[in-house]
Design a binder for these strands. Sequence first.
DNA 1: ACCAGCGGGACATCCCGTTTGT
DNA 2: ACAAACGGGATGTCCCGCTGGT
Lengths: 193, 193, 193, 193
Amino acid sequence: MPYTEEHIQQTRTAILESAFNLFTQKGFEATSIDQIMQGADMTRGAFYAHFSSKSDLYRQALIHSAKKTQAKYHKPEKVSEQSWLKVLLRGYLHKDHLNQKNSAPCPLAFLVTDVAIREDTVREAYTDAYRSMNNMISNYANSNSNTKPKSTLAATAMLIGTVAVARALDDEQLTHELLESCRSEIKNILENN
Amino acid sequence: MPYTEEHIQQTRTAILESAFNLFTQKGFEATSIDQIMQGADMTRGAFYAHFSSKSDLYRQALIHSAKKTQAKYHKPEKVSEQSWLKVLLRGYLHKDHLNQKNSAPCPLAFLVTDVAIREDTVREAYTDAYRSMNNMISNYANSNSNTKPKSTLAATAMLIGTVAVARALDDEQLTHELLESCRSEIKNILENN
Amino acid sequence: MPYTEEHIQQTRTAILESAFNLFTQKGFEATSIDQIMQGADMTRGAFYAHFSSKSDLYRQALIHSAKKTQAKYHKPEKVSEQSWLKVLLRGYLHKDHLNQKNSAPCPLAFLVTDVAIREDTVREAYTDAYRSMNNMISNYANSNSNTKPKSTLAATAMLIGTVAVARALDDEQLTHELLESCRSEIKNILENN
Amino acid sequence: MPYTEEHIQQTRTAILESAFNLFTQKGFEATSIDQIMQGADMTRGAFYAHFSSKSDLYRQALIHSAKKTQAKYHKPEKVSEQSWLKVLLRGYLHKDHLNQKNSAPCPLAFLVTDVAIREDTVREAYTDAYRSMNNMISNYANSNSNTKPKSTLAATAMLIGTVAVARALDDEQLTHELLESCRSEIKNILENN
DNA sequence: ACCAGCGGGACATCCCGTTTGT
DNA sequence: ACAAACGGGATGTCCCGCTGGT
């Protein structure tokens, strides 16, 4: 095989990350393949050697970034579930997450609306990612609970919704209050029963 | 002037509603002025007599639809706050809302991501709409509470997030569970303290 | 209606003729809409106000040029069928026809192969034009015949084939002989029986 | 060299035949090297080891298919010229020839228009093939004639024209009549004098 | 107010020739 | 000989704002 597998993977990853950045900042339609490839230090011609279409790339970029986010919020062995959950929430509901200063912005929040109007394969990928995130939170939340595990679906949606809405708001004070409110409510939901 | 004020308003409204429909179904970029005007039974030439640009229209369509949603969920005088809140939640978290069979889909949920990447004037309009919705819910929820009023910002975001995420999911069963979960959690948040 | 009907028709005709010229000289695929519009002294943007697609234009250009050719070979009242047929053949089988110095090159000969690989609507138009040409020749040829009218389908195909092949040949002498041969054979076919 | 001469020739032939198929079905411009190589079960990388450009390939494919056609219509020793001519005409003017079900479609008929707009080297190859076909028919037709050999150039053009036009027509009945008409007229031309 | 011709910008996709590597 | 990444050219189609015209 020409070009080492490693080199190909690097290229592929560079495209995926450039794409995800642009998709979250400008949306699917407003992002051109030229821009994406420029962000990956290549030209348009190379694109179709890696992805079959812009749509295909969108799906893969969604999956890729979901994995990254998932990895970022994965609990280290030595930490307890309870305390890790707090860390997770603090990170997820942090201002830096909104401004994409965060290294791994969550596609579930940044692409919701966009995904809803995309084709089924994309929505499937989103559904998988949502389920994963929900499972993760569910695990951490139910660990110390001696009552029966409860649905965290809405709690997860609240996290996603908070970040998504906060990103759309044009009032820093309100954004701050919203994040704060979410931090306090999410505890009630996850701890109380 | 050969056209009556009323006719102008009708035309304007037709454009706004056609626009909102398309914006929610295809997003800002993928919606063309031609399509919008076709949905309002006119041609592009007429567009510029009413709006200065697609962006301007987007903002106005957002405001228009927010008012419509607000009106739809406005409590009739004879009904108690508590019971009306239940009606409101049932309507908002209903499947028909997702599929746009609902007569007044909520722009806050249908356009979140899209708004976040639009210019400031649009985000201002979104912020206003979000505040209004939050106030409304807050009023209904705090009416019977003798404790101090509490922030409902996250609860509102949960509603929005649930609808937004549900629209993106590709699994009917999961969608159903999410709506269900939200219905039960929202009560805890709004009632408990 | 804005712009007079006449102006629109002029524009339309200019596009059609520019298109036919290019299609015969470079083929369907190698001809770009930019080139066509440039030949009609306009820019690409105006194109779609007149035709729905390049394919549509091709069909219409075929029809337009077929009509022109038909008109060119239409017998004046005072001339006898017999003598007019000779004029017609002389013009059709003339070198100037091949080089497109002729004012109305016959699409049946110049586009045969191209039409065969185009969609059905185009082939329908071609079929109509072929039938018309055949009828015309048939009328002139059978006029003085007191025997029963005979099929001229192959004679027509011979004319078309001769011009088409002659255009493809790279040997002036051979081209000349072919045209000569066709002139003599066509008489036998049309007159004898 | 790790590849045998035989293997190279097989590959070469596979490319030529795939190319000719596509050129007749989609035309020169609409056929990509990728498609051709796919039809030969290889990728584009291998192409340039055999041909210098698409144009070069076109010329060679024309020559190759002309030889194949020529071979197919070559008279077996035991058959008389007269009866073989009938076989030849029957085969050439058969419906299966049009639909490419025939194993060796005639490039003279399938590519006329396309060749006319190609560069000189291609037209030379076409001219050679046309001369060959004409010679062949001429030989068979003049064998039993005790009069001086006559030009069959137009007769050959009629065959080519008939097949070319028939392929472009969109009316089975008319196609049938055209082939029929050609069959009967060609006899007159070749036999009578 | 509304219609439609027109100019010109943009972009996903395709395509071809070269390069890198086996 | 063959495979595939890559650069960069081309084009049909769409899109938007302007303008002539009713």
